[in-house]
C-alpha cells in the first residue's frame, strides 16, 4: 500500500460514485430512520422532536405494545424453528455430499439448492396451493405414508400457521447454509480425515471430533446470517397471509408489523415516525445479535489455521 498524506485524485474518483449512491440510499436512510424515530408527525405533516416518546408508546402502550411484542415473540419462534430445523438439515446434507466417494453428490447439491433461487413470493403461493385443503394434494400424498388423518388446513389455523410458514421458509433456504457448511467442510484438508482414519476413528467420530470443531466458526456465521435474515423477513408472510399476517396476527413478525405501521392497512393510517421507531427497534435487535456474535464467535471461538 502506498501512503499519501491527502487523498489523491484518482482514489477520489474510484470512491465517490459508489460511496455517494451507497450513502444516499442506504447509510443515510438508516441514520435518518433512527433520527426520525425521535420525532412525531402531526396532521399537517410537520414534525416535532419528542425524544424517546415513540419507544415508550411502542413498548409500553397497550395499543401498540401488544402488537409489537406479539410480532417480536413470533419472530423469535420463527428464528428458533430455522435454527432447529434448517441448520441441522443443512449440516447433515453438507456432511453427506462433501464425501468425495459419494456418487452424484454434486447433483444432489445442485438440485437441493434450486428452491433458494425462487422468489419468496412464488414459493409462498406454491405452498399455499399445495397445502390448500380444497386441492387435496397434501392429503393424498400423506395418504401414501398413512398420515392423511393428520392433515389439516395448517396455514389457516392459529396454532400451526406460523410453524407451517417457518417450515416453508426452511424448505426454501436450506441451500444457503448448506453451501456455506459444504464449502467449509471442503476446506478441511483430506489428510486430516485420513490421519484420523488411520488413527482408527470411524467416519462418525471423524465428523464429530475433527470436522465439526473445525467448522464451528462457519456454524456461527450461519447462525447470525439466519438471525439477520429472519428478523428482516417479510415477503413470505406477506404473500401467503397478506399485511394482516392472520389468522389473528398469529403469523405477524417484525417485518410485517413494520410494513403495517409505516403504510397503514385497511382502516388504520400509516405513520412514518412510528414506522421508523419499529425499524429502529429491529435495528437494535439485529445490532445486539451481531454484537453477541462478534463477542462469542470472533473472540471466544478460535479459528484454526488449516
Amino acid at each position: 500500500m502506498s501512503w499519501h498524506p491527502k487523498i489523491p485524485l484518482h482514489v477520489f474518483v474510484f470512491l465517490v460514485p459508489g460511496v455517494l449512491i451507497y450513502t444516499i440510499f442506504s447509510a443515510w436512510p438508516l441514520i435518518d430512520t433512527l433520527l426520525l424515530s425521535l420525532y412525531e408527525q402531526d396532521d399537517s405533516g410537520a414534525r416535532h422532536f419528542v425524544g424517546l416518546a415513540n419507544y415508550n408508546i411502542l413498548l409500553f402502550d397497550n395499543e401498540w405494545s401488544n402488537g409489537f411484542w406479539n410480532a417480536m415473540w413470533n419472530n423469535l419462534k420463527f428464528f428458533v424453528i430455522h435454527m432447529l430445523v434448517q441448520n441441522p438439515i443443512s449440516l447433515l446434507i453438507a456432511a453427506l455430499v462433501s464425501n468425495r466417494m459419494l456418487k452424484g453428490a454434486n447433483t444432489y447439491r445442485t438440485l437441493i439448492f434450486f428452491p433458494t433461487l425462487l422468489s419468496v413470493v412464488i414459493v409462498g403461493f406454491i405452498w399455499q396451493l399445495i397445502l390448500n385443503p380444497l386441492w387435496g394434494v397434501s392429503e393424498t400424498l400423506l395418504g401414501y405414508i398413512g398420515l392423511d388423518d393428520y392433515f389439516d388446513a395448517w396455514l389457516g389455523m392459529e396454532p400451526t400457521a406460523l410453524i407451517t410458514i417457518a417450515l416453508i421458509s426452511v424448505w426454501q433456504f436450506v441451500g444457503i447454509p448448506l453451501m456455506l457448511i459444504y464449502t467449509a467442510l471442503l476446506g478441511i484438508p483430506d489428510e486430516l480425515s485420513d490421519a484420523a482414519y488411520v488413527d482408527g476413528a470411524s467416519p462418525r467420530r471423524i465428523f464429530w471430533k475433527i470436522k465439526l470443531p473445525l467448522i464451528l466458526p462457519t456454524l456461527g456465521l450461519v447462525s447470525i446470517l439466519t438471525f439477520i435474515g429472519n428478523f428482516n423477513a417479510f415477503d413470505l408472510i406477506y404473500s401467503i397471509k397478506g399485511g394482516l399476517a392472520g389468522p389473528n396476527f398469529s403469523t405477524d413478525i417484525l417485518g410485517t408489523f413494520f410494513y403495517r405501521t409505516f403504510f397503514g392497512f385497511q382502516s388504520s393510517l400509516g405513520s412514518p415516525t412510528m414506522g421508523a421507531t419499529v425499524a429502529a427497534m429491529m435495528f437494535f435487535v439485529i445490532l445486539v445479535a451481531v454484537m453477541i456474535y462478534f463477542y462469542l464467535v470472533q473472540r471466544k471461538l478460535q479459528r484454526y489455521q488449516l
Partner: peptide, 25 residues
C-alpha cells in the same frame, strides 16, 4: 489514505444491517 479504515467500516455496515430498515427515509 486518511479515513480509509473508517471507509471500510462504513461499507461493512451495509453487509450487516438490512437496507429495508431505512425504507421510511
Amino acid at each position: 489514505f486518511f479515513g480509509s479504515s473508517f471507509m471500510r467500516f462504513f461499507m461493512a455496515i451495509g453487509i450487516i444491517v438490512p437496507i429495508r430498515l431505512g425504507s421510511v427515509s
